[in-house]
């Protein structure tokens, strides 16, 4: 566990940005130091990565691949006219959809 590096990119998710907002508020109010906020974000990286392993649901999508990019071991796709199928049979159509995917083999369990 200790010293293991976890991906930071989940901070871009809704739960991550709302944490960053909350921490920012406390920093602006001078109730915590930025260093402490960084520690909390590091905890968030670890907790999120670990907790996502316990998720059960599945998803599939089809669409028109508009852009693909592979850089620094990260895939980025922009897919247009996407049809997303969720676990419960619900489908959602999205005009434009971006995927940022990191390599699973380095996701903290290597």
């Amino acid at each position: 566990m200790n010293g293991q590096a976890y991906y930071e990119f989940y901070r871009r998710s809704t739960i991550g940005t709302s944490l960053a907002d909350a921490l920012d508020t406390l920093i602006v109010d001078q109730r915590i130091q930025p260093q402490l906020a960084m520690k909390v974000l590091t905890n968030f990286d670890r907790v999120t990565s670990e907790n996502l392993k316990d998720v059960k649901s599945k998803m599939s999508f089809k669409g028109h691949l508009h852009t693909y990019r592979f850089c620094d071991d990260v895939w980025t796709f922009v897919i247009k006219d996407v049809n997303v199928k969720l676990d419960d049979g619900e489908t959602v159509n999205v005009e434009k959809f971006k995927i940022v995917a990191c390599n699973s083999r380095r996701a903290g369990d290597s």
Partner: peptide, 19 residues
């Protein structure tokens, strides 16, 4: 191990396949 925002709602998934 994904978390996705789709049309204003967030979803999580263990596995996803895309074509």
């Amino acid at each position: 191990d994904g978390v996705a925002n789709i049309e204003g709602k967030d979803y999580t998934f263990q596995k996803a396949t895309g074509d």
